[in-house]
């Protein structure tokens, strides 16, 4: 065990960790923007609206992320001429685009399922009260349903964020130098296998539990008023 070599390459590893965080945040933001309309489509009554959303969610939740990444990155090569004609080949040739696209589609499917559950778990009374106040349609959704659903779905969404952070390690398989990719590259250079992997593991661990902590704070902020109030225990 010789961790001095890790010390020497620490700036590179931190750079990789930064890329990991960046990919996570970008995928989450775009994924979330897709997930809410998708959840609403899933809840729609018309079969032409809900069945495509249902199939999308089923496919991206039912297949491994690695296959999705390879399907987009390597699979697009099969349609190179068609994509070149459309002017899209530049995007699909880029591992960053493909990796983030796969992560976005994947997290959109998982988050849509979380928000679908959360929206249908919003108590009827709240919606009825909103209607009684004269709200309807978009206003009712924006003011009553969505904030409440967000509060209900937040713990599950926090788990999804953590899964996504860890899932970003898979983009290292298509040559992106995130924390995992950088570690693999440094290992092939220095042969210090477990030193680098253990350091990378520790860095992921820190990022994961930092996120867990942040989400707990956020939950407390959003639903603190719903928590049982702490009362001094009666003396016995």
């Amino acid at each position: 065990m010789d961790f001095s070599i890790v010390w020497q390459y620490l700036p590179k590893l931190l750079e990789g960790a930064w890329i990991t965080l960046w990919i996570t945040v970008v995928s989450l933001a775009i994924g979330l923007a897709c997930a809410v309309p998708l959840a609403l489509a899933r809840l729609a009554k018309h079969p032409l609206v809900y069945s495509p959303a249902y199939l999308f969610v089923l496919y991206f939740r039912g297949t491994p992320l690695l296959v999705q990444i390879f399907l987009i990155y390597y699979g697009s090569g099969q349609f190179r001429h068609e994509l070149t004609d459309l002017g899209l080949w530049g995007f699909f040739r880029d591992p960053w685009f493909c990796g983030i696209l796969a992560l976005v589609l994947n997290t959109a499917a998982y988050s849509a399922e979380i928000f679908r559950g959360a929206i249908s778990a919003v108590p009827r009374n709240d919606i009825e009260a909103g209607r009684a106040c004269g709200m309807s349609g978009l206003l009712l959704f924006r003011r009553i349903t969505l904030p409440k659903a967000f509060r209900i779905g937040l713990p599950a969404y926090g788990n999804e964020v953590i899964f996504l952070l860890q899932a970003t390690s898979l983009v290292s398989t298509i040559t992106i130098l995130d924390l995992t990719g950088i570690s693999r590259q440094l290992i092939s250079k220095t042969f210090a296998v477990y030193e680098f992997y253990l350091t990378a593991a520790a860095m992921y661990l820190v990022m994961t539990y930092a996120l867990v902590y942040l989400f707990r704070l956020w939950e407390k902020r959003l639903s603190g008023h719903l928590q049982p109030r702490v009362v001094a225990e009666p003396r016995t």
């Binding site: 860890q166 899932a167 898979l170 290292s172 570690s183 992997y197 593991a201 992921y204």
Partner: peptide, 12 residues
Amino acid sequence: VRGVPELILLLL
């Protein structure tokens, strides 16, 4: 185990 990606553990 829940804080480290599967890929890293597998490679490790």
